[in-house]
């Protein structure tokens, strides 16, 4: 009984000290966080909010939702959205499947070669879209080296070439970014796949397809979906390489935003409205994919 009274008296004192220490600490930390908060607030949050507000006014400053109506009624924008969705899905699938394949191979290599391969596949991350566009023009353009070689071998006329400047070609060039990106995310996922789990399933008499269906895929799928959301989001906003390859000849949502923000069709509120729609599409896709991944993770557990 006396013991409890002693602690009851002592505890608040200790707490009071802790609180004072904590507030002192917090003050120092708030100071350290200041540049971070100011910079992001001023140059990331404020511009985005500002863009959202301005998209609700026309160029003379009168309130309107015309910019958003345009997005969904003008054929040029509707085609752009449809093309962007198709293009982003196609490029993500190519990148997702290709990257998973590369990662699956990488984890089966001896550590030295695996690290080499993964370092090499980290390289495209910082490469300029223009660099990759240039490289592929030299390799596969109308008179690109590979086209010349194939033509020479099969004695084909110069009218035959792999067309880099249409959708399949553009997807292929973007795969050079997407496959390595997916490789890096999936390599981590594959390393988490416990081989003893597969062993155990086999010992319990599971057939190969059952091992895949009930052991491997449930472990891999959440990571795969996370990787796919990075792929899809990246592709919705991509335009540099397309611009370098075909200029404005292809109609994508990203290219429409770019041209309304900085080219002859200059109309910033419209570009803002298109950007907000782009954010909404990407956010929806990310939410769906993460919801799917969480559900799968729960079912696996």
């Amino acid at each position: 009984m006396p013991d409890t009274t002693v602690t009851a008296v002592r505890k608040p004192v200790a707490r009071w000290w802790e609180v004072r220490q904590l507030t002192a600490l917090l003050r120092a930390e708030v100071l350290l966080l200041l540049p971070f908060v100011v910079f992001l607030g001023l140059f990331e949050v404020y511009p985005l909010v500002n863009m959202g507000i301005r998209s609700l006014f026309d160029q003379d400053g009168a309130f309107t939702i015309q910019n958003y109506v345009n997005v969904f009624t003008k054929p040029q924008f509707r085609t752009a959205i449809r093309n962007s969705l198709l293009f982003a899905s196609a490029a993500s699938l190519v990148g997702g499947i290709g990257g998973t394949f590369v990662a699956a191979l990488a984890v089966r290599l001896p550590p030295r070669w695996r690290n080499f391969l993964l370092s090499l596949y980290a390289l495209p991350m910082t490469l300029s879209g223009l660099v990759v566009a240039f490289a592929f023009i030299v390799l596969l353009g109308r008179n690109g080296v590979l086209n010349l070689i194939v033509r020479r071998i099969f004695a084909l006329p110069p009218t035959v070439y792999f067309n880099l400047y249409d959708w399949p070609g553009i997807v292929m060039v973007y795969a050079f970014f997407q496959i390595p990106l997916m490789t890096l995310s999936m390599a981590a996922v594959f390393e988490n796949l416990d081989p003893s789990l597969i062993e155990a399933a086999r010992n319990l008499g599971a057939r190969p397809w059952q091992v895949w269906r009930y052991v491997v895929i449930p472990v891999l799928l959440p990571g795969f979906l996370a990787g796919m959301s990075i792929q899809f989001a990246g592709m919705m906003g991509a335009f540099g390489t397309v611009l370098a390859l075909v200029g404005m000849a292809k109609n994508l949502l990203s290219l429409q935003i770019y041209s309304h923000a900085s080219e002859s069709t200059y109309n910033l509120p419209q570009a803002g409205a298109l950007s907000i729609v782009l954010i909404a599409i990407t956010a929806t896709a990310l939410a769906l994919l993460s919801w799917g991944a969480r559900r799968l993770a729960r079912r696996a557990a």
Binding site: F43, E44, Y46, P47, L48, N50, M51, R54, S229, I230, A233, G234, M236, G237, A238, F239, S254, I257, Y258, A261, S262, L268, A271, G272, S275, L278, I279, T282, A283, L286
Partner: peptide, 20 residues
Amino acid sequence: IILPLVFPPLVVGTALLQAF
């Protein structure tokens, strides 16, 4: 990780362009 996915460079560029 999510920030640059939801707000891709293109959108940040469009926003910065008209803010200042």
